[in-house]
């Protein structure tokens, strides 16, 4: 699967639960070997959308193809080539990590070696530990191992770091990042903005079932992230600094004793940061760049708290 080849195509996907529209006319594409994030608060329809792609749900209308196969009529062909870690992942409590991964391996004709996958995910130390005795982070990691052991072309991770502590979350991010080096396309859902910033190549923002925007993360930030701020601590002898700022900033002003410059272009702001850095001496300089949080704020009209609820 080449990097630019489309592996997932969703067109006008719609899923209704009675009067509730969980996914509303969603269209997007996912390219090979990228990390694609579906970002949104709880109840936005992310899980429903990926479960349609995983052949676990039937769309009310619209079409979706994964690796060239239709999700409603060719489920088995798709399931042989994908890996899935559901949001509420669970497996046989009293089987060990190794036994659970081996069970998963036996579900597929081809795949990787169990020991190799355990090693790849740093699970060898816990290989003989019962699943029920693992911490949440290691349970989630076991889930990823069970999904990876089939050597999937597309790996779906539904909220892979929800409920994990910051250290476990960063470890999981590292492991997910390494997957693309192996040629795996990763589709993840999350409500963590920083997760998308840290991991995703491209992202789709979902709010109330609808996709508000889909693009590369940098393009989304560029388009919807708003201005980049450069704040320089002022001391009354800052005319050279102000002069440099005015050459490229759209606006320069004093705020609470500091000099603040606004930029439309993130690259220009970073260049200016380098030039000012040499003139400012010991004075502190802070470049505040926009991220997915600002993008989400702009598009959804609110932010998402730690638990995934709209604030």
């Amino acid at each position: 699967m080449s990097t630019r080849e489309t592996v997932v195509e969703a067109e006008n996907l719609r899923k209704e639960y009675g009067p509730v529209v969980a996914v509303d006319d969603a269209s997007f594409e996912i390219k090979g070997e990228e990390i694609f994030a579906l970002l949104g608060p709880n109840g936005a329809g992310k899980t429903t959308a990926v479960e349609i792609l995983e052949c676990l749900r039937t769309p009310t209308s619209g079409t979706a193809r994964v690796l060239g196969h239709d999700v409603t009529t060719e489920a088995r062909a798709i399931k042989k080539r994908i890996g899935v870690v559901p949001q509420s992942f669970h497996t046989f409590d009293r089987l060990t990590v190794r036994e659970n991964v081996a069970l998963s391996r036996r579900m597929y004709s081809d795949g990787l070696g169990v020991e190799a996958v355990l090693e790849q995910l740093d699970l060898l130390e816990y290989a003989d530990t019962a699943f029920e005795s693992l911490s949440g982070g290691y349970q989630r990691r076991t889930g990823i191992a069970m999904a990876l052991v089939s050597d999937p072309e597309v790996l779906f991770l539904d909220e892979p770091t929800t409920g994990l502590d910051p250290a476990a979350r960063r470890t999981t991010w590292g492991q997910i990042e390494r997957l693309t080096d192996l040629g795996t396309t990763v589709v993840l859902t999350t409500h963590y903005m920083e997760e998308v910033d840290a991991l995703a190549d491209r992202a789709a923002l979902m709010v109330e079932g609808a996709i508000e925007a889909v693009d590369t993360v940098s393009a989304l930030v560029e388009e919807y992230g708003g201005e980049v701020k450069l704040r320089v601590e002022a001391d009354g002898e800052d005319a050279p600094v102000e002069s440099v700022l005015r050459e490229s900033a759209t606006e320069v002003y004093h705020s609470e004793g500091d000099l603040v410059a606004l930029f439309d272009d993130r690259g220009l702001a970073q260049d200016t940061f380098g030039r000012v850095d040499g003139l400012a001496g010991d004075h502190s300089i802070e470049l505040t760049t926009a991220g997915m949080e600002e993008v989400f704020l702009r598009l959804a009209g609110g932010s998402v708290d730690e638990r995934g609820e709209m604030a």
Binding site: E54, C55, K79, K80, V84, T91, S104, Y108, G143, S150
Partner: peptide, 14 residues
């Protein structure tokens, strides 16, 4: 209820 079956259903298991 705990998702074990859903995880199995997502594999080629019939």
């Amino acid at each position: 209820s705990d998702g074990t079956l859903k995880r199995l259903v997502a594999t080629p298991l019939r």
